[in-house]
Design a protein around this nucleic acid. Structure first.
Length: 86
DNA sequence: GCTGAGCGG
């Protein structure tokens, strides 16, 4: 019932060369990142190309989303959306 | 070294 964005962001279409450390560094300047993670694949030993970034407040999350969504990172177009906790 | 939808654990 929440029309709010929430503090969690779904980050996807990352290049296979982008790492969690890079992700945190890219999202840190926009606010206080409380948690960041890339979904790993046990078979390929690489991340699946998407992950999650959590901020202290949803204001920061929205700001970072608008700032990073559609940006080119490591030669790939990065997409950022509010996460949908299943 | 390479590919490319999607909401993890």
């Amino acid at each position: 019932m929440s029309q709010r964005i929430g503090t969690k962001l779904f980050v996807y279409r990352l290049s296979f060369y982008t790492t969690l450390d890079q992700l945190k560094k890219l999202f840190s300047p926009f606010g206080v990142v409380t948690n960041a993670n890339l979904v790993m694949d046990p078979v390929t030993k690489r991340h699946k190309g998407f992950g999650f970034v959590s901020y202290k407040t949803e204001i920061e999350a929205e700001k970072a989303m608008k700032a990073m969504n559609g940006r080119i990172v490591n030669g790939r177009l990065l997409l950022v959306e509010p996460a949908n906790e299943k």
